[in-house]
Design a protein around this nucleic acid. Structure first.
Ligand SMILES: [Mn+2]
Ligand SMILES: [Mn+2]
Ligand SMILES: [Zn+2]
Ligand SMILES: [Zn+2]
Lengths: 136, 136
DNA sequence: TTTTTAGTTTATAATTATTCTAAACTATAA
DNA sequence: TTATAGTTTAGAATAATTATAAACTAAAAA
């Protein structure tokens, strides 16, 4: 009941009312010991599989967007025409397995850039992301 | 008429019949002096704007896919739920302008990785791609 | 050459991912 | 309490892409 309070505060902090649905999603997403890379479809299946009262797909879309805007989730670069999200919001990189289409985290300091290009005039670098494609 | 023969040979080499539509698209895509980053929608507008006889949208999808499989185009990583392609098939990286949503090439040796992680067992690194997000 | 064939193009339908809408609901402020 | 504004929801709408199947055409066979 205290982990739940933590989540409620976290939501309030970002101006998000702690509704039943948001709390359920936050518990599922933020209390994991392993990074979760997911699509809305995948999350929906996971949320709505058990006896949990169902959360509508529209709400899952809304909530994932709200959590992303609040900085609690990160959208991942892919070449599929489907959005992927990441519960690991720290700056880090990915292996993308072309066979299984699975993403795996690479620790930030396992990839070192020793040369970053100068951005175009008037622009500055906000972040960068490396995707390493792997195969059998 | 010789550039056209070059294209016809290129197509034949990949087992693609040099149809009127494929030749038109190949001329538009492969004979450029500047990299072209595009979506199918953007390409369709460009192809079908002039007096050119129209090429159907389905054919543009099919052809872009065929050219990508043949290695004449490359698909780019993005976070939009729309596919982006690149006429620059050499290994290189991109600036992604979050404001204008435009991609710009970064020369391959303007980005240097001095540390690449070891891939998971049984897998090997095929390629890697860096996207640098920029902003005002 | 003509004929055959297999591959290709096309309009259009179907599918998939996502966003929109507006009515019912609910957390919180009054 | 009651009012208000934010939220959820089913379902409709839209956007991107893929599938279908008939008409067409490049290349192979005759
Ligand atoms: Mn994408
Ligand atoms: Mn889509
Ligand atoms: Zn990750
Ligand atoms: Zn490029």
């Amino acid at each position: 009941m205290n982990q739940k309070n933590g989540i409620i505060n976290k939501l309030r902090t970002s101006g998000l009312r702690p509704t039943k649905q948001r709390i359920l999603l936050a518990q599922n997403l933020f209390i994991r010991n392993k990074t979760f890379h997911f699509t809305v479809e995948k999350l929906e299946k996971e949320i709505n599989k058990n006896g949990n009262e169902k959360v509508s797909l529209a709400t899952i879309y809304n909530t994932v967007e709200a959590f992303t805007k609040a900085g609690y989730l990160k959208e991942i670069l892919t070449s599929k025409n489907k959005s992927y999200y990441d519960t690991n919001i720290k700056s880090h990189h990915h292996f993308y397995d072309e066979t299984t289409k699975e993403l795996t985290d690479i620790n930030y300091n396992q990839v070192k850039l020793n040369k970053l290009p100068t951005p175009p005039k008037g622009k500055k670098i906000k972040s960068f992301e490396v995707v390493i494609r792997i195969q059998k």
